[in-house]
Design a protein around this nucleic acid. Sequence first.
DNA 1: GATGAATGAGGTTTCATTCAT
DNA 2: TATGAATGAAACCTCATTCAT
Lengths: 214, 214, 214, 214
Amino acid sequence: MAVPRKKSQRNAEQTKERILASAMAEFAAKGFDGARLDAIVKKAKVNINLVYHYFGSKEGLFLAVMEAAYQTMRAHHGEIEIKGKDPVEAMSSLMRRTFRIFADFPEIIGLLNSENLYQAKHIAKSPHIRELYNPLLSTIGEVLDRGVAAGVFRPGVDPKELFISINGEGYFYLSNRYTLGFILDENLLDEARMARREEHIVEVILSYLRYRPE
Amino acid sequence: MAVPRKKSQRNAEQTKERILASAMAEFAAKGFDGARLDAIVKKAKVNINLVYHYFGSKEGLFLAVMEAAYQTMRAHHGEIEIKGKDPVEAMSSLMRRTFRIFADFPEIIGLLNSENLYQAKHIAKSPHIRELYNPLLSTIGEVLDRGVAAGVFRPGVDPKELFISINGEGYFYLSNRYTLGFILDENLLDEARMARREEHIVEVILSYLRYRPE
Amino acid sequence: MAVPRKKSQRNAEQTKERILASAMAEFAAKGFDGARLDAIVKKAKVNINLVYHYFGSKEGLFLAVMEAAYQTMRAHHGEIEIKGKDPVEAMSSLMRRTFRIFADFPEIIGLLNSENLYQAKHIAKSPHIRELYNPLLSTIGEVLDRGVAAGVFRPGVDPKELFISINGEGYFYLSNRYTLGFILDENLLDEARMARREEHIVEVILSYLRYRPE
Amino acid sequence: MAVPRKKSQRNAEQTKERILASAMAEFAAKGFDGARLDAIVKKAKVNINLVYHYFGSKEGLFLAVMEAAYQTMRAHHGEIEIKGKDPVEAMSSLMRRTFRIFADFPEIIGLLNSENLYQAKHIAKSPHIRELYNPLLSTIGEVLDRGVAAGVFRPGVDPKELFISINGEGYFYLSNRYTLGFILDENLLDEARMARREEHIVEVILSYLRYRPE
DNA sequence: GATGAATGAGGTTTCATTCAT
DNA sequence: TATGAATGAAACCTCATTCAT
């Protein structure tokens, strides 16, 4: 049972958290340049100077947001559960999860686009982030190997290329949902439509993994 | 004897063109918010008032740039040449061209990302753009049909999903080249690396089109 | 007779001049850091951005003010009139003028103090200023030589040391008028008091120039 | 057994001292407005609240620094030793000491300039400071009288004017060392150069004191 | 007694845009 | 047609200071 803690106005952790959450939304929606610190602090209901107190600058805040985004992404790939499954199951699960991450945390897409505008100069300062991905790439390689051994996957697939494809199939659909939606005259955010895309992705990638060029 | 009207018209065209080219580079590199009119006019070597004279506002200029970008994109899909070819050839060609468009005109990626940040509100004002894509989607459908008839493609493939996949496989690779490059520790812009990606895309999509689920 | 020029709100020269005059007063009174652009533009009745339009930055404005100050100083040393006079007259005149420059343009003192706080980093960018002083030092050397030749001045006086003494005797009196006034319990800005100081300076320096150590 | 009260008192004294020393350097180097409390406390390695605890405000701290500066100045004039000496010796000694005070405690110059910017409003609150100078002015008057009586000094010299001259000859040289150094193209802080200036000052003032206008 | 959290006011600068010439 | 002058709004950031713990 929780101890009735005195509700305090002074809580560094909570304040940081509120700023971070608000900043993530703003940066994702407007990009780094379009984002307004004013909007961030207003939504977080904190004094603007606390941003400087805790994060040093707009850029520092952005970097913190990026790190949080990557953490979130990686936390949802669910490798532990994947490792045991049979290769096809495992790969399908990974694809679906990847797609769902982008769908459930659309801010991530905005943040990644913004970061690419800046040529990744922010995350380049965070070696932490790269390490985050080594396990995932290993997992992909491992599942591929097991699939080949089991005779269900073609040999010779490059894990990195596969990683890009798995992400790209869903990322583009979502990152370009507005221009694409306009051109195709479809509402890509509709849940049924999303489900269809998810199936399509699994089908495309599994076909590739299974297909044997003669 | 000089024909002054004609000459000044020609200068006007040239000036507009210079502004447009400079603006495309700037908007692509910095996004709409990050782009500076100052930088655009300085590079184009024109007075800033001409931007207002010709395009009305920063937004107007951006829209003009977007239209030019879509024109470029569509001009390079090369449907006329595709139509006659055998289905596999035609589809491969389309994939390669799509990838190369993004590679050769990287500004387009920046512009599309920027436009998606703005929820496509700029191009939504340009009905012209949507029409641009109808022929391409028809072409894809037609090639698919011929492939099915010829027994080389599986039936039941949705042209729109396929369109998204063809684009997504290359777009993500290029749009996220910096973050991806950092995570994968590869230089994705290296020409050999790009060629490998192109092959991979063709292989993935063709596998999908050829594969027959039992 | 003046041509009835249309009184224009758009006059770059006038605007610059107004900014400069206002800035000189503010910088002299408050120092570089204490000076407020707000106060400067308010007094000059111009939009704050014009400061940036014309001078680039607060620092740029300060540099422009410093150059103007040095110009003023040098313009009032009146070397042309001095050159002909007999050595004692010439030297006395130079001393009196030097004192009067600081008295009549007290802003100069504030500016010089401010500039010394910054270790002369602003004027160091203006090679123009150093050249301004070469003629004055030459003049002093020349007058000294004539005085020695005429038997009225001692030999071996260093023009640079003399230059510093001539300035220092008046500068300190004026630059430290407030702390000094407080300590000595005198109003140093009183005109009669100033006249007395002027006489004192002439007496001290001339005594030095005439005195023959045995 | 430890005596805690005494120890904490001692720490308190030490802390105040550290703040004061750090503040003196900062105020002298940057002026009142340019000085940053942050920089002061960082260098003194104390929490910023202690400044408020001990000195009340930035202004209070500045006043404390000013008082310390005047104390230092007066402590180095060395009147006791001077009183006995013969007039020429005594006056020379006073001049050299005055010059050396400014040379050895250059912070004093920065502080005095800053205080004059503020029209001495801070020290005006400290009647203590004025009294500090009465003995010095008396000493000067007394030495002058002895010199006249001994036939080595001219009669009729005003002690206050002399006081200003003695200070001004060295103060200007040092306070304007940067602008002057730039104009004269000399490094005025060079020890040999300083020694030369010291000799020059003694020579100028003694010439004045000895010279007999006919 | 000492520290980190929080605030308010204001400062310099940037930028899109409009006005006169 | 084309240019420089001028403006208004707002952005990021700094700094002295006060509040809680």
